[in-house]
């Protein structure tokens, strides 16, 4: 039994249908636990006051924003090389989730930034690269909807995912140069993970686990919808004939 067995849509539907309830329930459990633990039962931090509680939503969503794109990249690569339709549809299904996560990460960061930095928005390298990532998500989704032929859309969006990955990474480091090059000594560092104490670390881990499970559950659900929609179109085309 190899992983490529799931490239068969029928087998994927059967298997994902069985898995989906487990992922959904555990995602809900972990998110509720992590957020309640974080929101109600963790102390304030000296430097950040109660805003430290935003870490439990900001960090998981930001991680997913990036990793959803990585997953789309891998799925697109699999489609280009092995031409498994489920893979292409999974990439399509992941894009809206990644886009929403990017928006949430940016918004929670902005809400946090207002009292902490005195501004909603700064052209900090991390903030800027998330904005760029969001635009890549928008372009990717727009290209999917613009092309009617399904296989062609899968092909072209895969090329975009490849090119987009290269340039998203390139922009991330180019932005570093630009900010330090023009505004010397801007020191709005977001490296909170590195000095997080255990009281915050454990609920954060639970929340991250919950959001990852939520991503998987939504991904399975949306991929199933895409597979069904394709089947619907095929049947309708047959009836119309």
């Amino acid at each position: 039994m190899s992983i490529w067995e799931f490239a068969n849509p029928v087998r994927f539907m059967r298997f994902s249908g069985k898995l989906l309830p487990y992922f959904s329930v555990s995602a809900a459990l972990l998110i509720v636990t992590g957020l309640i633990w974080g929101f109600f039962f963790t102390p304030e931090a000296d430097q950040f006051g109660s805003t430290v509680k935003i870490i439990y939503i900001h960090v998981p969503t930001a991680m997913l924003a990036i990793n959803a794109w990585v997953m789309m990249f891998v799925a697109s690569l699999i489609w280009l090389i092995r031409r498994h339709h489920v893979s292409a549809l999974a990439a399509k299904a992941a894009a809206p989730i990644g886009a929403v996560m990017t928006v949430v990460a940016i918004l929670t960061g902005a809400i946090w930034g207002q009292p902490m930095w005195g501004t909603y928005w700064a052209w900090d390298p991390r903030l800027t690269s998330f904005l760029v990532l969001f635009i890549f998500y928008l372009g990717y989704m727009a290209l999917w909807t613009a092309i009617e032929e399904e296989d062609k859309a899968a092909d072209l969006t895969s090329v975009l995912a490849m090119v987009g990955t290269v340039f998203a990474v390139l922009s991330r480091y180019a932005v570093n140069f630009w900010n330090q090059g023009l505004h010397q000594g801007a020191s709005l560092s977001l490296d909170k993970e590195e000095h997080v104490a255990d009281v915050y670390y454990l609920p954060l881990l639970v929340a991250i686990g919950g959001f990852v499970l939520l991503f998987i559950a939504l991904l399975l659900l949306r991929t199933r919808t895409e597979i069904r929609n394709r089947r619907i179109r095929a049947l309708q085309a047959r009836e119309a004939r």
Partner: peptide
């Protein structure tokens, strides 16, 4: 929409 983000670097 597709090209402009590629121009950033």
């Amino acid at each position: 929409l597709l090209v402009l983000p590629l121009y950033i670097p």
